[in-house]
Structures are given as structure tokens and as C-alpha cells.
Design a protein around this nucleic acid. Structure first.
Lengths: 130, 130
DNA sequence: CACTCAAATGGGAATGATTGTCAATTTCGC
DNA sequence: GCGAAATTGACAATCATTCCCATTTGAGTG
């Protein structure tokens, strides 16, 4: 495991963690910052970035990248699922894919990779758009 | 499959494809642009971006994102596969995942989505980076 | 509690990849 | 060869993310 640098508990760090905990879906640092501001918490944008990064580095939260390259975060333990997105109308269906989870773990093990996480996106054309 | 917009064969497009073909590893648009310039090919940076994007959209090349979010490309073997990328050193392993293919098709069918395609990215930490 | 000092913060400026703009150029079917 | 439509190039504009640095704050210590 990566060594964990000293971390202090600050009002801002707690606020970031709390706000993230209330999000079901992945959120970007920008979105989280806006949300905090709305909630009346005054936290600098740079601070949101720094905290999200260190929390991700410590494994406290998940970080993945959206299609456009923007980093998005999610509190761990929120239940994990994927999406099936319609290419035409954009409607989405949430997919629970235990099969994929197992597959990902197995592939990681086969190639001796640790801490394997995965991103899965399905796109298609939904019934009403055909 | 996704509809392919009309594409013309231009000197620049060929140059981009050729340069990419000579790279073993993944390269970013910026790197490829620099390489082209070194080779004496005059191709605009925006053009490199546009071509890489359209080639990726057409499935002619692979596109993934490095840890820092920068998009990197690589000429891909024709057959469909996924990647297992090391979060630390960036080394990649190609994964053939018949299991995922079948899973994706089944999920699409269950929700009545047609022309389902999928994106799967696995990231972890490889043995030598631990 | 008062004290100390490194960690943490904030916010504005800087960075750097990517995208937009639009006139000029090039491709390709006819 | 012609003309419409795609493509290009140079540069400006975006926008997430990082840097900088003066100021604040957490948390041991005596």
C-alpha cells in the first residue's frame, strides 16, 4: 500500500467528505465545489481539488475519468453499477453487473495487477428511438 | 455500428495514420504532432486532434486516457479487445474478453437496446510497481 | 492554556490540453 | 475541368487543474 502522508482534519476536509457522501453518482471537483457553495460552506476550489486527490490517493474514495477526461469522484461503498446509454436520446438504464465485477477481478489476478478497478460503458439505441 | 461520416483521404490524414503506425506505445496528440513536425510533415495541431478523434470514432485506432487525463492513442490490431492499464507506470496489457462481449450483448437485449457497443477499461497496479 | 511550526487554506494567476472559428484550400463525383 | 462539401491551418477561446504564496489553523508540547 502507498504510504499515507500526514493528514489533518479540517473543517474543509470534512465538508468535502460529507458533501461527497451525499452524492449518489460520480461528481467532478467543480460540481462538488458548486454544491458546497450552495450549501453555504465556504471552501476554496483548490482545496476541493487537493482534498479529493489526497482522499483518492488514500483509497478513501473512488476516482475515474469521464469520457471528456474530467475527473469524477465517488464515495466508496456507494453501490457500484454501470450504465447503458442511448446514443440517440441519451436516456440511461442502470446496470448491476456482478458478472463484470468478477471478470475484472479475475483478469487482474491473471496478469498480477493489484487494486484493479474498472470502467464500463454500454451504448446502444433504445427501443423508442428506432 | 455507428454510422461513419464521409471521410476523405488527405495528405495530413495519411501522415497522422502513418506516424501513429510507427509508434509502439500510446502517444498523445501533442506528441504525435511534435513527431510529425520532426519528420518534416507540416500538419496543424488542430488537424492532428481532429483526425485522431475521427479515427478513434471509426474504430481505426484505440484511445484511452492516461492517469493525468491526457488522451493517448495507438494504432490497434483490427480485432476487438480491451486494456488493463497500470495506474503507476502506464504499461498496458491487451485483454480479449469474450465474456464481456457476451455480457454486453445480453444486457442490451434485456433492455431492448440495439447496436450495443461497449467501452471497458481496467486499471490496477502491476507487479513491478508494487 | 500559551506557544510553535508544519500542514492546510484561499484565491487569483498560470498552465496546458483540447476545442472553436472561419477564410483558404483540397478532394471527389460528375 | 467544375463546383459543392469536406478539410485544413493558424490562432483565439475554453476550461479543468495546478501553482504560488501570504495567511490561517490543527495539534502536539511544556
Amino acid at each position: 500500500m502507498a504510504e499515507q502522508a500526514p493528514r489533518r482534519t479540517t473543517r474543509q476536509r470534512a465538508a468535502v467528505a460529507a458533501a461527497l457522501g451525499q452524492c449518489e453518482e460520480f461528481v467532478s471537483a467543480q460540481e462538488l465545489h458548486a454544491r458546497l457553495r450552495t450549501d453555504g460552506e465556504r471552501v476554496g476550489l483548490a482545496t476541493v481539488y487537493r482534498n479529493l486527490q489526497s482522499m483518492a490517493a488514500d483509497g478513501e474514495i473512488d476516482m475515474i475519468r469521464r469520457d471528456d477526461g474530467e475527473a469524477v469522484y465517488r464515495a466508496c461503498s456507494t453501490d457500484h453499477h454501470h450504465h447503458l446509454v442511448c446514443r440517440v436520446c441519451g436516456s440511461t438504464v442502470e446496470i448491476a453487473g456482478p458478472a463484470v465485477e468478477r471478470w475484472a477481478d479475475r483478469v487482474g489476478a491473471e496478469h498480477d495487477y493489484a487494486e484493479v478497478s474498472h470502467t464500463v460503458e454500454l451504448t446502444g439505441v433504445c427501443a423508442s428511438c428506432r
